[in-house]
Computed example of a mutant assay.
Amino acid sequence: MKQNFTVRQGALDGVEAFLTVAQHRSFRRAAAELGVTASAISQAIRVLEARIGAALFIRTTRSVGLTEAGERFLSRAKPAFEELVAASEVARGLGQRPAGLLRLSVPRAVVPVLLEPLIASFCQAYPEVEVEIDATEKLIDIAAEGFDAGIRLGQFVAADMVAVALTPPLHLVVVGSPDYFATRGRPQHPDDLRQHACLRWRRSGGALAPWSFNENGEAIEIAVSGPFIANDFPTMLGAAVEGVGLAQLPGPIAREALRAKKLLQVLEPFAPVVPGVFLYYPDRRQIMPKLRAFIDHVKSRSAAKGTE
């Protein structure tokens, strides 16, 4: 059976006063250390004793001692309070400088194309930040899953997220291997794809994505068919290189294979432009310094590339 655990309001009130008095065995010296009056310390202790239901100190005109209840309370409260203080210091440190674990959810295809150079330079610039990359195609709730930010194509970023562009808009390109075209020919129009083997992409929600095109300024979609389905672009890229069929991919994913002539592009006049890749996070008011540092690093790198 599930139990409900609660901390009463004000349960920690007076604990610091108690520990300081117990350390100095003096209300006056405790008050001086905490920067309050001795009467304020006495009142805090009285309230704490009333809440606990036991006297914690033995007071005389010459000295202050601990009762048995006070000794037992001290033995448990002191290490617990020290842990709270230490936890506060750790949290304060993370809130004041770039440090700690930065968790990012990203598609697998983005890692070699975009993130590897960024991460290398970022880790050198901010040695106190540890970067964890979770490479997944799933569109997850980054806040619920404990991620600081995510990276996705712009069309998959929710409207309530703060988004930072990592790339300019991208073309979706249709590519195939030279061997494929040698046996199947080249499509001249998107309608020709119905006679071709097309590699399909299954979205994280389970649906098969249609292929998108632009014809005379009008967006069109075509439901293609073929022998192979994948849920990430690198797998589709590899299958296209092996001649399994045609693939529609973001331009940067196919760039190296096109340069190496492992793939050839077709249907260039119909290639649609889609939003680029974005870094996104829930709320600019909740940004920790580690994420702010990463965002600034991304922007500075993008600005440097723009001037090259």
Rank of each mutant, 00 (worst) to 15 (best):
Q23M: 10
Q23Y: 11
Q23W: 10
Q23F: 11
H24C: 14
H24I: 11
R25L: 11
R25E: 10
R25S: 13
R25D: 10
S26E: 03
S26I: 04
F27R: 15
F27T: 11
F27N: 15
F27W: 08
F27S: 12
R28F: 11
R28Y: 14
R28Q: 15
R28S: 11
R28G: 11
R29N: 14
R29D: 15
R29H: 13
R29A: 15
R29V: 15
R29T: 15
A30E: 08
A30I: 05
A30L: 05
A30W: 01
A30K: 03
A31F: 06
A31P: 07
A31C: 10
A31T: 05
A31E: 08
A31N: 07
A32L: 14
A32F: 12
A32H: 12
A32E: 13
A32C: 07
A32K: 15
E33Y: 02
E33I: 06
E33W: 03
E33M: 09
E33D: 14
E33Q: 12
L34N: 01
L34I: 04
L34V: 10
L34E: 03
G35F: 03
G35A: 03
G35I: 03
G35V: 02
G35E: 04
V36R: 02
V36H: 04
V36A: 00
T37N: 06
T37F: 06
A38N: 13
A38V: 11
A38T: 12
A38S: 13
S39C: 08
S39F: 13
S39P: 05
S39Q: 14
S39D: 11
S39V: 12
A40S: 10
A40G: 04
A40H: 10
I41M: 09
I41H: 04
I41D: 06
I41A: 05
I41Y: 04
I41L: 07
I41N: 06
S42E: 09
S42G: 09
S42Y: 07
S42P: 01
S42H: 13
S42I: 06
Q43G: 08
Q43V: 14
A44C: 01
A44T: 03
A44Q: 13
A44Y: 07
I45S: 00
I45W: 03
I45F: 00
I45P: 08
I45K: 02
I45H: 03
I45Y: 02
I45R: 00
R46A: 12
R46C: 04
R46N: 12
R46L: 08
R46F: 00
V47P: 05
V47M: 00
L48C: 06
L48H: 00
E49K: 02
E49I: 07
E49R: 03
E49G: 01
E49W: 01
E49C: 02
E49T: 08
E49Q: 00
A50I: 02
A50W: 04
A50R: 08
A50F: 01
R51S: 00
R51V: 01
R51W: 05
R51H: 00
R51E: 05
R51I: 00
I52C: 06
I52M: 07
I52Q: 02
I52Y: 04
I52D: 03
I52H: 05
I52T: 07
I52L: 12
I52F: 05
G53K: 07
G53Q: 01
G53A: 00
G53E: 05
G53P: 03
